[in-house]
Computed example of a mutant assay.
Amino acid sequence: MYFLFLFAEMLLLFLTVLLVSELGAGLRRHGHHGLLLPPPNVHNYPVPPDQWFTQKLDHSQPGDLRTWQQRYFTNDTFYRPGGPVFLMIGGEGTASPVWMVTGSWIEYAQEHGALCFQLEHRFYGKSHPTEDMSVKNLRYLSSEQALADLATFSAAMAEKHALPEGTKWVAFGGSYPGSLAAWYRLKYPHMVHAAVSSSAPLVAKTNFLW
């Protein structure tokens, strides 16, 4: 009787591990630091190249004319004139172009004929606003500056791509970028029609990463 019970327990454990493994393939993947990792490029579509946008260093000081180059990606494959714009917000990690060809938001883009952008967060990946990350320069690393980056970028892309007036922008983000998506909709409601804010901690914390 004991061996039957033990066998049943082992079988249940095996099935549980198998189920979790299968479900995990469809869930968000995180690295050992808890940062969101890009999904695998299961369709092996070619990813878009790096593009660069001239961004202001300090949005809070109109007289400060210093600029830097912010990296972004574009996917206009599914865009239909009059369609929405989907903006994936980068977070505390390197932006990956794989996000531009896979993931649920790309399925939504296909369905709705959306133009897709991904903007890398300042101070992460290849987006370096300053020469170093000294305490003096890290004052430019804030959610306020990141939100202003998004607004400046959105306005410039609308002009560059000659988007019709009234084009609806939808911001996407998960975890910290999810917070940015919600705050972007809150602070710039005239620029963002909707925000998809996944697993977003919206209450301020002293250390956001823990």
Rank of each mutant, 00 (worst) to 15 (best):
residue 4 L to S: 07
residue 5 F to T: 11
residue 7 F to A: 14
residue 10 M to Y: 08
residue 12 L to I: 06
residue 14 F to W: 14
residue 17 V to R: 12
residue 18 L to K: 14
residue 19 L to T: 14
residue 20 V to H: 13
residue 24 G to V: 03
residue 24 G to W: 04
residue 25 A to M: 11
residue 25 A to S: 12
residue 25 A to G: 13
residue 27 L to W: 13
residue 29 R to N: 08
residue 32 H to Q: 11
residue 33 H to R: 14
residue 33 H to F: 10
residue 36 L to N: 07
residue 36 L to F: 09
residue 37 L to Q: 13
residue 39 P to Y: 11
residue 39 P to A: 15
residue 40 P to W: 08
residue 49 P to G: 04
residue 50 D to I: 06
residue 51 Q to E: 14
residue 52 W to G: 07
residue 52 W to D: 09
residue 53 F to E: 03
residue 57 L to R: 12
residue 58 D to G: 09
residue 61 Q to A: 15
residue 61 Q to G: 03
residue 67 T to E: 15
residue 67 T to C: 10
residue 73 F to D: 00
residue 75 N to D: 08
residue 76 D to K: 10
residue 78 F to K: 00
residue 81 P to Q: 13
residue 82 G to E: 02
residue 83 G to Y: 10
residue 84 P to R: 05
residue 84 P to D: 05
residue 85 V to Q: 09
residue 86 F to M: 00
residue 87 L to S: 06
residue 88 M to T: 03
residue 91 G to F: 00
residue 92 E to F: 01
residue 98 V to C: 06
residue 101 V to P: 08
residue 102 T to Y: 04
residue 103 G to Q: 05
residue 103 G to W: 04
residue 106 I to S: 07
residue 110 Q to T: 04
residue 112 H to V: 11
residue 114 A to D: 10
residue 115 L to W: 05
residue 116 C to W: 08
residue 117 F to Q: 01
residue 121 H to R: 11
residue 122 R to F: 04
residue 123 F to T: 01
residue 125 G to C: 03
residue 130 T to E: 14
residue 130 T to C: 14
residue 133 M to T: 13
residue 136 K to F: 14
residue 137 N to E: 07
residue 140 Y to A: 07
residue 141 L to T: 01
residue 141 L to Q: 03
residue 145 Q to P: 02
residue 145 Q to R: 10
residue 147 L to V: 04
residue 148 A to E: 15
residue 151 A to L: 14
residue 151 A to Q: 11
residue 153 F to M: 04
residue 155 A to F: 04
residue 156 A to V: 05
residue 156 A to Y: 07
residue 156 A to M: 05
residue 157 M to H: 06
residue 159 E to P: 02
residue 165 E to Y: 05
residue 165 E to Q: 10
residue 166 G to K: 10
residue 169 W to R: 07
residue 170 V to K: 01
residue 170 V to W: 00
residue 171 A to G: 13
residue 173 G to M: 07
residue 176 Y to F: 14
residue 178 G to N: 01
residue 178 G to H: 03
residue 180 L to R: 01
residue 181 A to S: 04
residue 181 A to W: 00
residue 183 W to V: 06
residue 187 K to W: 05
residue 187 K to I: 09
residue 188 Y to M: 06
residue 188 Y to R: 03
residue 189 P to G: 07
residue 193 H to I: 04
residue 193 H to S: 15
residue 194 A to E: 12
residue 195 A to N: 10
residue 198 S to D: 09
residue 199 S to W: 01
residue 201 P to Y: 06
residue 202 L to Q: 11
residue 205 K to T: 15
residue 205 K to C: 11
residue 207 N to W: 12
residue 208 F to H: 14
residue 209 L to I: 11
